[in-house]
């Protein structure tokens, strides 16, 4: 009797553990703190519905790239070519519409399936066939694909996209919600389901946790590696579609350096750089954090020179807190 009572009281007075809290809510806490700080500093310009929607719209490309990057990092690898895939699929889709007069729906489908998925699969095949680290392979394809962008566009912007395309993808749903946000969210929801519920999603976590065990357990390691890079390619091409629609043109320099944002979104989102740990919704929040920093600092009037500095500090701080307070880090 007495023992049971004591049990109850210990349960009630269960100590608050910062580690456990941080493990679960680190990303959303950072986002909330950011919004709060900028909200207090600029209540009338930052904290308005219109601006917050704008932040989300600006973040949609980072989020889409981050969603793909997540799968490369989940395997303990990395995909540096996402920015080039984004530019190339955007440029090729634009040319299909402008120069070949293809219907926008057909062009976009080709852009995603052929340019996005296929290029991603090539990355995956190269990684599995050579056994080289994904860093090296995708550093190579990043350069190759960027060069292809210049070749197919002759280093000039492809403009004159059909209005039906840029008005739809670059427009607003019901006149309120920008379509890029809708694209990013739908992608995130599909991938959340994929990682949490599908067998191949589970296998990707297994593969990232221990590739040897995965092979011995009967998981097709090569097929799953190719799948991960294909998803990364598809997400990058979606970012490419959104990008050309928003600008109503395909710029050959589009997305240069964006792979860094993608990686930052994933890492700030709490994914382990060693693979096997991470969640899709947190990548979305990671992408929003980057958007809030850029937008908020602009609002506060901080020179853009300092924005990278803030990003860098935040990245190191977030991962350091994970290392010291994360209760269930896998290397424990």
């Amino acid at each position: 009797m007495k023992r049971e009572e004591r049990k109850l009281t210990t349960k009630q007075t269960k100590k608050f553990s910062f580690g456990e809290y941080w493990d679960r809510y680190s990303t959303i806490t950072i986002l909330a703190l950011m919004v709060a700080v900028f909200g207090v500093l600029r209540p009338t310009s930052f904290l308005t519905g219109g601006n917050l929607v704008k932040v989300m719209e600006q973040s949609s490309i980072t989020i889409l790239l981050g969603l793909g990057e997540f799968f490369a990092i989940l395997l303990g690898g990395i995909d540096l070519s996402v920015s080039s895939i984004m530019a190339l699929s955007g440029a090729l889709t634009a040319q299909l519409m402008v120069n070949m007069g293809l219907h926008p729906v057909v062009a976009v489908l080709l852009g995603i399936v052929v340019f996005g998925a296929l290029i991603g699969m090539v990355n995956g095949v190269l990684v599995t066939a050579t056994g080289l680290p994904p860093f090296i392979i995708t550093l190579g394809t990043q350069a190759i694909l960027r060069s292809l962008v210049y070749i197919v566009t002759d280093a000039r912007a492809v403009s004159g996209l059909p209005a039906a395309f840029s008005k739809t993808v670059g427009g607003k749903l019901g006149g309120i919600v920008p379509v890029p946000i809708v694209v990013a969210l739908i992608t995130a929801i599909i991938l959340t389901f994929f990682t949490a519920k599908s067998q191949s999603g589970r296998n990707l976590y297994a593969l990232g946790g221990n590739s040897q065990s995965a092979w011995y357990a009967g998981i097709a390691v090569k097929k799953h590696t190719i799948l991960a890079f294909a998803i990364s390619g598809v997400c990058a091409s979606l970012a490419g579609m959104v990008n050309i629609a928003r600008l109503a043109a395909a710029e050959p320099n589009a997305g240069t350096g964006y792979e860094t944002y993608a990686i930052e979104a994933v890492i700030i989102g709490g994914a382990s750089f060693f693979g096997g740990i991470g969640k899709i919704p947190k990548v979305v929040i990671g992408g929003l954090i980057i958007g809030v920093i850029n937008n908020g600092l602009n609002m506060v009037g901080v020179s853009s020179y300092y924005q990278q500095l803030a990003m860098g500090c935040l990245l190191i701080l977030a991962v350091t807190l994970d290392r010291f307070f994360g209760a269930s880090r896998k290397n424990g």
């Binding site: 067998q199 296998n203 097929k223």
Partner: peptide, 18 residues
């Protein structure tokens, strides 16, 4: 559960729901 799940999955582990 992983081996059970894999055993009833299709396409070499690519298909199936957990």
């Amino acid at each position: 559960a992983i081996a059970y799940q894999l055993k009833k999955s299709s396409f070499g582990g690519l298909g199936g729901i957990t």
